[in-house]
Design a protein around this nucleic acid. Structure first.
Length: 211
DNA sequence: TGCCAGGCCGGGT
DNA sequence: ACCCGGCATGGC
């Protein structure tokens, strides 16, 4: 298994090169994006974030003070905008109630404590929490998303209905515990997924892993 | 034009 | 402990 993963990683890296994830200008933007991208095309998320940027609202305090209704309208292109506005507000309430709005204070703790805290916030599940831990806090946890699961299922690294935790374990038990590696590997799987074999209807013609 | 996208929650078995 | 419906836009 270790060798399989190593070969997959090096093949993808050779093919695509570094992905420079997470695509965002700030830690705050990473977290907002992580919530907005739940079951949503990243292109739509970019439109929503662009709206916030144009309105100069990409700051914790500003969003914290913004009415939920107004926030919902701004993030409309990301879909599920009512529920996502509530989720963003829920996160911001947590941030201000517990850390006086300081992201660095919130993120500056050990991985398991941070994960537990994030999961206690309504609207933040395992993937969103792990994305924040890996890409915002830069701590070594492997992010499992739809592409990651499909990858593991189709390559028989897990069984067909493996849980989030089981899928995550495949990577974490067989790779060096290294945030930089986890970052690049997950980003490469998403890149592969968007372009080739990990869509719900796979198009594997030119998949880099074909051999 | 219908289907899909970088999930999560709440209520029901 | 799982399973399912609901949430919604924009792109192809």
């Amino acid at each position: 298994m270790k060798q399989v993963l190593t070969r997959v990683y090096s093949t993808l890296y050779r093919h695509f090169g570094p992905q420079y994830w997470w695509p965002a200008d700030s830690v705050f933007e990473i977290i907002i994006g992580a919530i907005l991208t739940q079951n949503t095309n990243w292109q739509n998320v970019e439109m929503a974030i662009s709206n916030l940027r144009k309105a100069k609202l990409l700051h914790a305090k500003k969003l914290y003070l913004l009415k939920t209704k107004k926030l919902a309208q701004l993030i409309r292109p990301s879909g599920y905008y009512n529920i996502k506005a509530k989720r963003l507000k829920c996160f911001l309430k947590f941030l201000f109630n517990n850390y006086n709005g300081s992201l660095s204070k919130m993120l500056n703790k050990d991985l398991l404590s941070l994960r537990e805290e994030l999961l206690s916030i309504k609207g933040i599940g395992e993937e969103t929490a792990d994305s924040i831990i890996l890409y915002a806090a830069k701590l070594p946890i492997f992010v499992v998303d739809a592409y990651t699961k499909r990858f593991c299922q189709r390559h028989r690294l897990t069984d067909i209905n493996a849980s989030y935790a089981e899928t995550q374990k495949v990577f974490m038990d067989n790779l060096k515990e290294d945030a930089r590696l986890f970052n690049e590997f997950h980003a490469l799987l998403v890149r592969l997924g968007k372009e080739f074999c990990l869509k719900t209807k796979p198009k594997c013609k030119e998949c880099p892993l074909k051999n």
